[in-house]
Design a protein around this nucleic acid. Structure first.
Lengths: 320, 320
DNA sequence: CTGAAAGCGCTAACAG
DNA sequence: CTGTTAGCGCTTTCAG
């Protein structure tokens, strides 16, 4: 029989004699035949995978997002290819390129910075959802009210009795870093009398360490730290330990992101939790709608909220 | 001019007039032309991406491997697509399928269990390297001497003065879980007199928790725990805390894998570190050689060693 | 319901 | 050095 019929049979087209179709499937199975996906993609102009581009695979925030994306994608029969841009604009654009070239069904992108160039994707009309950091483009997005969370965290520090809260935030070109700094500043300003103390550093353990060192080496060091992500918090702990300082006594600490280990460090870390899984899940939902063409023309923007979880690191204990 | 010439110019073939080539590139740039990767793959029968299939994105062991793979892949100009099989044979086979269909240049696979079906990949002659857990197939592999590491860890517990060491290992169908259990058993048997105490549980935080609970609820509970991975260790800590036990006093603990947070939990966790980054890097090197056809017919098998890092959780402190 | 034919966009082989 | 031709493996009109 003809290739066309085989194709139809294997793709479950209704316009084919059931018994013949069965025979085709049987033969295919026996021969171990597998359709060539590349050829199919070339013809169909689309694949059933989607790309998720994140800035750091080793950040639990992003792995939680990943799970959210995977769960909904899988429920719709799509696979997700994870791409780690590593906060590197070069890698990010390479992956954007790969996504375009592989003709993925859609992409979810956590952009490195606002300048990320998604023009090609748009031109190739590949549906897209932005997460975590906004892009100056009219596309769907799922963001978190970082600024509110930061403000809440800082206020909590002040309410707990700390008098010189400082902020260790991410790099200057990261929107989330700016927002968290803004939130901190709003809180501090809302209380008058307080100095504004902050440093920028990479969103890494090493960054937290150097940030803490710089702050603590200042002329009038802070007595509390609001840290912009969980990995940096580990670095802060490292530096604090090196100096023999006691968290909760000499220094209050609260951090963005509730990592699996947050309750178990010493002392248990107070955090502002982001709904990471939901970010992923919602972004995937938005994307799926667009992939199906079931979405409105105008971009949708979702804003999710953070949640304050107070443990020990931010409480003020007497010096013994 | 002809499409062929354009193709040659854009691909930097030497057999094309330099000035013409420049003109082509200029025009392409101006028009924002991007070659269709799918068509190219169809023709070339290969892409410049490789797939890394791991069983758990949220396990720091695998993210460290990922970095190793990415670094060497990138140095050779390849991108890596990360696939999270989530310890689910179904997802694993889906990704294997995707890898085949997308005609990736090669795949690095951490198989769920020995039965993983890679026959199709082999038939499609896509180069492959297995990591972490062996497969009953003649393919390149990079493994860790888990058993030795487990034995070392258990001996360390015994040497530190703990008298009833137990083992919380992974699921029965995971080779690494078996090996770590074997190592524990060898150590225990080498000391005579000691009971053999162990449980299987999922390689997750929840698994560590339930495993610890089962052991601690036994008639003669252990006084020390060797835990088979870092995520389970968090669960153990959770359960131990719930019971008001003090690690290092009432209970000695040592775990596989040195996570970023291991030094910061309370008390600092003693570990058997796996050379995760190297696993990834070496696997990628093996794969690259095979992709280039520069590898011998016969499969290569690399075995890497673990390293014992003693911190506080495994030391025995007086109850005072 | 099935077959023939065209073609997705590119590149390799072969002439010139 | 360049153009022509063919074809990667599939799906989809369009006839029959």
């Amino acid at each position: 029989m003809s290739a066309a019929t085989v194709s139809r049979a294997l793709n479950g087209r209704s316009t084919v004699d059931p018994v013949l179709a069965a025979r085709v499937r049987e033969a295919a199975r026996r021969l171990g035949y597998r359709p060539n996906g590349v050829a199919r993609s070339l013809r169909r102009q689309v694949t059933d995978v989607l790309a998720l581009i994140i800035t750091d695979v080793s950040n639990p925030f992003f792995t939680a997002i990943t799970r959210g994306v995977e769960d909904v994608a899988q429920s719709k029969g799509l696979s997700v290819l994870l791409c780690n841009s590593d906060e590197d604009p070069g890698k990010e654009s390479t992956y954007l390129h790969v996504a375009e070239q592989e003709q993925v069904a859609g992409v979810i992108l956590a952009p490195h910075r606002a300048g990320s160039d998604v023009a090609h994707l748009r031109r190739a009309s590949i549906p897209m959802v932005i997460i975590d950091r906004p892009l100056g483009e009219p596309v769907d997005s799922v963001m978190v009210r970082s600024r509110d969370g930061a403000q809440t965290a800082t206020n909590h520090l002040i309410d707990a009795g700390w008098t010189r809260p400082a902020c260790i935030t991410g790099p200057e070109d990261a929107w989330t870093a700016q927002e968290r700094l803004e939130g901190y500043l709003e809180a501090v300003r809302g209380h008058g009398e307080l100095d504004e103390l902050w440093v920028h550093a990479p969103f890494r353990q090493q960054g937290g360490m150097s940030g803490a060192a710089r702050l603590l080496d200042g002329p009038e060091p802070p007595d509390a730290l609001f840290v912009a992500n969980a990995q940096m918090a580990l670095g802060v702990l490292e530096e604090v330990r090196r100096r023999g300082l006691r968290v909760g006594v000499d220094l209050g600490v609260i951090t963005f992101d509730d990592a699996p280990w947050s309750p178990f460090v010493s002392p248990p870390m107070s955090v502002v939790a982001q709904p990471a899984y939901d970010i992923g899940a919602q972004a995937a939902e938005l994307l799926m709608e667009r992939v199906k063409g079931a979405a409105p023309e105008t971009p949708r923007h979702l804003w999710l909220s953070t949640m304050l979880i107070v443990r020990e690191s931010s409480r003020r204990h007497g010096a013994g």
